[in-house]
Nucleic acid binder design. Structure first.
Lengths: 463, 463
DNA sequence: CTGAAAGCGCTTACAG
DNA sequence: CTGAAAGCGCTTACAG
């Protein structure tokens, strides 16, 4: 059997319907299968007979709730393999299942994993003892310990997380909700990819995950789009799988937030601390003030505008306010209006500029963007229209994401301690989960002005 | 009470030790608290008295396994609030807990969430009925339905995921293991940030998450570093929280992989399908062949080298082989050797080049990199040494990550359908979880050569 | 030190 | 249509 046919061996076999697929897409994973690569690069070992060893048969058959339950039982090897106390009933083979041993045949069978009862029996001890040696509670007798450990190794036992979670009331999972900026992208959007690129939220998540790992936690990330019909619902759905929730930017309305916080610990990023929630964010006022003064006094720009992020973003609002105040204090002109509303994406920034330029609007001397992503779009639009940055117009960002320094015109921006934002958010959440008294429930991290080319620094301003 | 003191209100209160912190870091989340931002930006509403309404008291007290269990019970509102059948024992207040009502005081208290029993009682029906209306099973009487729904709304009931998972034997969670390239970064590494940037793996994960969402699944991502002492252990730990596992690149040894696959469905990315696992990857041979021929025949380069990724990476090995073969076929020179070993990071690429240049080695006419990240490092090193790309040396990448087109010298590379790789991996895993016959267990996605500047295309080759 | 048993919060046949 | 009960796989006082 050559690789080609081996790869298709599974085809044509009966396929059972998935268990109530939420939004079932055009199903079918059929892809272009290596049109021309050398065979050895994609060979599919397919020793059917002995290739799928069923350590301990006995299929639990998780029949789909509705839909015709389809039984694809593996070869039932050891009938008496699971003498669990609470009488395992063995597989409940669906009535319409003509043949069995199907999953075993296609070689991808996964037998029902062993439980703590299997380990206990194999080791000749009680499940309590197994649990104890596995969790290092009260030192068991060395012999007991060894026997258990051996049984565990032999069976390849992996304790079920759900069962443990239910028992200790701790899942060791933190849910993270991100506002999805890349939802509204159009096919021909030049920045589709760029907006898919590493965002500020991704880096924060990296920080969260890192801190979580130290505590034995994992993170479950879910993104909700701006135009989501029910962000609250999606958030709740994630909450049931987590011990606590971290909310990026502003994903929930205040009332929804309160409801959620009543059920589970909640930490917001860039929001505002409430009696029930904690918050961690960067010092927007200080960051924007430094940037604004640099533009106003160091460069002497007399007219400045601000391209906002999401309309209701606390971060964007804070930045806007500080900038407007600084511009006013300097007696300079603050160019404002609805046409300057962005959405934190490069596409949004480009759109704002294109619209402005189409109307032949006079541009301010400097354009301050809500974040780097937006600035990237602005730079692009300006460049395409032959407008020089920073010669004709200065442009700045906020965040200092990695790409910022690789742009053709390096971006002047305000650096946030992005990962630290995430790490801190997790630590606060962790303490809340442990019902500890949080050290502080409104944490603000410092920022730093990063001067590069786009504001007019770095190189002699060329016309 | 001003914002400053409000923020510190919680301090000084007794803090209980966290439950067996794995690798306890210098604890304490104390951060720089807004050095100079206006107060209203970080105000912490702190209406102590009525701020923390305890809907239905009764604290479950998840006392830390070892360590002195510290009880921080909330105000016990409704003593008889949980008439659960299996006799809830109420809080097991730890012996050393002098006072209670502590979490309520600091305002961040989270009462024990209601269970299905609370809902059933409130609605005057059985828990079975609650479960049925919530899951839309067998249409309940409209009245029953309404009462349940109302009770759910009133109590803010969120069914516990662990309990559900245990019962239906499905967690609706897919575990994803990534090989962590950013582990070995040194402080002074110029590319630390760049390597922190959106990587190929991140984009794949985005695809996985997207596909997962359609099926009601969430993904749990864990990264293991190359020098991990026990990648298998960390993987198993994640496996207990998941229904299936997706492995990036090559994170497990074949034997570990087999052990894992015997317990739980496994899909590898860029690996090789085995009797127990499925694999999805890009067509490396075709992609590299197109690239190699472009370099060899279109540009006529006669000497080429390859900077590899991780030594044992199947992708890198496949690319290497194809390139070597193509170069040989063309009768050109393939410059090889251990000094050309990279590690998929920009830092790695830069290091290889710096070492080579330090030894004043003659460079080949073209340097093919295992991935874009590596190429970025190479471009950087070359530029610093005043070597012109593509004038003196051509450089190419692989992946076509977003930054590739934003580099000063735009990168010629081989595009992979990155997100699709992830989406496909999830779909295959999903079918395995449902014990379906997979459509194909070795899926290969097509690639596409993207010619930009770094190979010598696009602009007239300047000296 | 160890075992028997209760309990975690759901879902789902099984009988009314 | 609905309720009582069993069962999912662990952990943990509680008694030996």
């Amino acid at each position: 059997m050559d690789a080609e046919s081996a790869a298709n061996a599974g085809r044509g076999a009966r396929t059972s319907g998935p268990a109530t697929p939420p939004t079932s897409p055009p199903v079918g994973v059929t892809k272009i299968t290596s049109p021309n690569g050398p065979a050895e690069e994609r060979s599919a070992p397919d020793e059917l007979p002995e290739a799928a060893p069923i350590p301990n048969g006995h299929t639990g058959e998780q029949s789909a709730p509705d839909g015709p339950g389809t039984a694809q039982t593996a070869i039932d090897g050891l009938p008496e393999a699971s003498p669990a106390p609470n009488g395992l009933t063995g597989e409940q083979s669906a009535p319409d299942a003509p043949g069995t041993a199907q999953t075993a045949i296609d070689g991808l069978a996964v037998s029902v994993p062993p439980t703590i009862y299997d380990v206990a029996r194999a080791a000749g001890v009680s499940i309590a003892s197994v649990s104890r040696v596995l969790n290092g509670r009260r030192n068991p007798r060395p012999e007991t310990r060894d026997r258990v450990l051996q049984a565990v190794a032999e069976l390849g036992f992996i304790p079920d997380g759900a069962a443990r979670a239910l028992s200790v009331r701790l899942k060791e999972v933190a849910g993270v909700i991100v506002r999805q900026p890349w939802a509204s992208k159009t096919p021909e959007d030049v920045f589709a990819d760029e907006d898919d690129s590493l965002q500020f939220p991704d880096m924060i998540n990296r920080g969260i995950a890192e801190a979580a790992q130290r505590r034995g936690f994992d993170i479950l990330v879910r993104s909700v789009s701006l135009d989501e019909h029910d962000p609250g619902g999606r958030t709740l759905a994630l909450a049931r799988k987590s011990d606590g929730i971290i909310l990026h930017d502003r994903v929930l309305e205040p009332d929804q937030l309160e409801r959620l916080a009543r059920q589970i610990p909640v930490v917001t990023l860039a929001g505002v601390a409430t009696p029930m929630t904690a918050n961690v964010s960067s010092d927007n006022p200080a960051g924007m003030r430094d940037l604004a003064r640099h533009l106003l006094y160091d460069h002497g720009y007399r007219s400045i505008s601000y391209i906002g992020g999401h309309v209701d973003s606390p971060d964007s609002i804070a930045r806007f306010r500080t900038l407007a105040a600084e511009v006013a204090d300097a007696g300079a002109e603050f160019v404002d209006g609805p046409q300057w509303q962005g959405n934190y994406t490069a596409g949004g920034g480009a759109r704002v500029m294109n619209n402005l330029l189409a109307r032949r609007t006079d541009l301010p001397r400097a354009i301050v963007c809500a974040n780097d992503q937006t600035a990237i779009g602005v730079l692009y639009a300006l460049e395409r229209h032959g407008i020089s940055v920073p010669g004709d117009v200065a442009v700045t960002g906020f965040d200092d994401i990695p790409v910022a320094r690789h742009l053709h015109t390096q971006l002047t921006t305000v650096r946030q301690r992005i990962r630290e934002l995430g790490e801190t958010a997790f630590e606060v959440l962790y303490s809340m989960i442990n019902r500890e008294t949080p050290v502080d429930r409104d944490i603000v991290l410092p920022t730093m002005l990063i001067r590069r080319q786009s504001c007019g620094c770095g190189e002699a301003r060329q016309p």
